[in-house]
């Protein structure tokens, strides 16, 4: 991997040297734009952040853009403490985050593996009517959950899976199939077929081709899919509320909802602290997976 990275860095250097005067200008403009969008994207995050340090009287919409008064010595940490471990009348987000990890990690890994295998056989190791099967799977993405909730609930009861986290894992894996299959299939479609054909001609079996040729070049797509599945399971509210809604067993979105909308008096500061807290694990995943976005992996696999 490190050899690859070096290669990548080098090619990056080459990139920026390409062109003469105009291109330097272009690089500058590119950075200006990137920073501009950075600021735009961060505006709501700024409001979340400053409000999370405000006391109850200051945490009001009219003061959204203002820093907490008494900055920075009098910033209150009460909101963060309350959101993490719960205060009287404020549900705790912290323990719910732990429960959610138990749900999200297995479900996103299983989904990604399943999607990768499906995508592979639907694009590069095809069988008759593969497109029809793909359509069949893909259409599942559009199921209107709310309209089928009662039969779904009955189905889950009939299956008699332990309620709470195991049920949620099953549902996220099942309803993740269409989208993960879609992403992998379309990614593999964009990969030159020669790679796989070559292995096939060599007489390698399906699983071997998948394992030694396809999987190594799938990293960017795994990143995309894991990000998706992790996020959607982490942020799912609909299944959580139907299948694990008890405040002491529910995942983090239940705690957040109870925090943000359960009370008669909304504690904005604590809600926003909770919102940021609940987003942190997902952010960690983005940062951890983000580095595998490095290009040139294809080239590596061809050469290697």
């Amino acid at each position: 991997m490190s050899a690859l990275e070096t290669q990548v860095v080098q090619s990056g250097v080459v990139d920026s040297r390409v062109g003469k005067h105009g291109f330097q200008w272009g690089t500058f403009l590119r950075h200006v734009l990137l920073i501009f969008f950075l600021v735009v994207v961060l505006l709501p995050v700024y409001v979340l952040l400053v409000t999370s340090f405000k006391g109850i009287t200051e945490a009001q919409p009219a003061r959204a853009w203002l820093l907490p008064s008494g900055w920075p010595w009098e910033w209150t940490l009460e909101n963060w403490k309350g959101a993490w471990s719960g205060l009287p009348g404020i549900p705790a987000v912290g323990p719910a985050m732990g429960r959610t990890l138990l749900l999200v990690i297995p479900s996103s890994i299983i989904s990604a593996m399943l999607g990768s295998m499906n995508g592979f056989v639907l694009s590069r190791w095809r069988f008759p009517h593969a497109n029809l099967v793909f359509t069949f799977l893909l259409f599942g993405m559009f199921i209107p959950y709310q309209a089928v909730m009662v039969p779904l609930y009955k189905l889950v009861m009939w299956l008699d899976i332990p309620s709470g986290i195991p049920t949620l894992i099953l549902l996220h894996v099942v309803y993740g199939i269409p989208i993960t299959t879609l992403i992998f299939r379309n990614y593999y479609e964009s990969v030159p077929s020669e790679l796989i054909e070559a292995s096939r001609v060599d007489g390698a079996g399906m699983m071997r081709t998948y394992w030694s040729v396809v999987l190594p070049i799938s990293v960017p797509s795994f990143v995309v899919v894991l990000i998706w599945q992790f996020t959607s399971a982490w942020n799912d509210f609909l299944f959580a509320v139907f299948f694990a809604s008890s405040p002491s067993q529910g995942p983090v979105t239940i705690a957040l909802r109870n925090l943000a909308q359960g009370a008669q008096l909304t504690n904005y500061g604590a809600s926003m602290a909770g919102a940021l807290l609940a987003s942190l694990p997902t952010l960690v995943v983005y940062i951890a997976l983000g580095k595998y976005f490095i290009g040139g992996l294809m080239a590596g696999s061809v050469k290697g």
Partner: peptide, 21 residues
């Protein structure tokens, strides 16, 4: 990571701040 970050903020949480904005 910054560009991706808003996706990490669940809709329920995003709603709290966007309601203000």
């Amino acid at each position: 990571s910054v560009y991706l970050f808003p996706m990490a903020v669940s809709s329920i949480a995003a709603g709290v701040v966007w309601k203000w904005l």
